[in-house]
Every structure is written in structure tokens, then in C-alpha cells.
Amino acid sequence: MKLILQEVSKSFPGKEVLEGINYTFEQNCLYALLGRNGSGKTTLFNVISGQIRRDRGEILLEDGGERRPLTSSDVFMMVAEPELPEFLTGYEFLKFFIEANADRIQEPASIEDYLAQVTLDRADALRLIQDYSTGMKNKLQMLMFLILRPKIILMDEPLTSLDVVVQLEMKKIIRSIKEDHIIIFSTHILQLAQDLCDRIILLHGKNLHDVEEKMAREEGFEDKIIALLQEEKSQEDGHDGE
């Protein structure tokens, strides 16, 4: 299975963010997406998920030898601060979510089984979501894509504000499902990208650039990436001043 971007571009008034991106993401590979704040990582995710329209280009899914346009039902986007109905308990929310998506769930399980997948105990599940920590909310969000099993999972800095225990739990889950999905993991933490992901991509200069696997494992990797991104920023500042 492949996610194929062909000449994908997106601009906003006075600023081009993505320019002619050509890239192919493959199944069974965790991709880390690195870039400076404002480089366009979230914009890229929003374009892929269909939340905003691209200006031009194509986004295709190749599966089982067939290639077709990507649809919103193929994608799940996980965000750092999920907005969930806080007037419901975690259990009530999952029950509602399962019922609302019954036609998309291939192998339904009991709510208790789903809760066990993210080590969320029943007592916590019966609490109102308004009383949940960010980590607990993210566990519910993770359950949403574990239930739906979308072909493509986009993670927009989902581990940044979590404690180390929850981070470790989520890392294990992410690794355990990569064989069946295309997973792109946006982060600004270089160490996390190295530890968790198979491939590292930089979004800079409005385009995607592979980081050589050898370079990603070398000593001084972080310094090299920082220097590259700072160089890009300097060039942009110089261009703006012309």
C-alpha cells in the first residue's frame, strides 16, 4: 500500500507553504516529519486528510495494485490536544463512536477489549472526559483509529505533552500496528524521531526531503539538522528583506 503525492501545492494569501511536493509513503514504515514551526507540517496533514483544499496536484492511494484518489475515510488525523465531548464519560463516548461508525468497523470488539488495548481501566472510563488528563484524552483518541483501522494515520505531535509512561505505552501501540498502515508522525523532537521512526523526512523550502538513514544514525545528527533548518530560515529572512 502506498500514499502518493504528485505536485501537491498549497498557498495562503501572501505565502506559499507547499510547492510541488512529490513523495511516496509506504506501508509498514514509520515516517517522522520534521520541520521548524510554521514550515507547513500541519498544513500538509490538513491537505492529505482533506480538511483544507490543495491548490493543485494529486493525492492517491495505491492498494492491491489499484490506484485511486485518496478519500477522507482512508485517513485519521491525531492531534496533540484532542477536542472531545467533555460532558460524556470515556465509556459513553466510545459507545457513541462505535455506533456512529458501525459501517466502517471491520472487526468489532467489546468496549472492555478496546480499553484494554490502551490500558485505560474501567474506573477511568466511567469518569467524565472533562476530568481527563491530556494523556487520557490521547488514549481515547488513539482508540478511535484502533477501532476504525484507517489505511493512513497522521500524528501531529501527539506525544509532546505526555508523561514518560504514557509516551512509552503509545510508542508500543504505534510500533505494533505499523505493518497494516501508513503512519506519518510529525514532531519537533529529534530524539523521538530517531527512536521511534524508520524514516525521517524534512519539510523545508516548501518541499519534502529524505534524510539518509546513515546520517540519521551518525553522531552530531541533531546539529546537522538544526544547521540545515537555520540555513533555510536565514535564506527566507534574506529573501523577505529584498
Rank of each mutant, 00 (worst) to 15 (best):
I200M: 06
K2D: 14
K10D: 06
L34R: 00
Y31S: 01
L70M: 07
G220N: 08
E19W: 09
L84W: 09
L190G: 01
E112D: 14
K10T: 04
L88F: 15
A227G: 13
L60Q: 04
S186Q: 04
P82S: 02
L18N: 09
H239E: 12
E107P: 00
K2R: 15
V75D: 05
L88P: 00
Y91N: 05
F96P: 00
E19P: 00
R67E: 08
L61S: 04
L228G: 01
P85D: 08
E86H: 05
E213S: 10
S73Y: 03
E66A: 10
S176R: 11
T89Y: 07
L196W: 03
P150I: 08
D163Y: 10
K151E: 07
E58Y: 09
K95C: 06
I201Y: 09
M142S: 09
E112N: 14
T134C: 10
E218Q: 14
S73F: 04
E99K: 15
K10R: 15
A125Q: 08
I52W: 10
Q194W: 07
G14C: 13
G35W: 00
Q235W: 11
M144I: 07
I174Y: 07
G14P: 07
N207T: 15
T134Q: 12
D113T: 12
V8Y: 13
I189W: 00
R56S: 13
G20Q: 11
G14K: 15
I4G: 02
I200H: 05
N138Q: 15
D163L: 07
K206R: 15
K15G: 05
F96H: 07
D240E: 13
S72K: 15
D124V: 05
S176L: 08
L61R: 07
L120N: 01
Q6N: 13
L60T: 01
I52Y: 12
E62N: 04
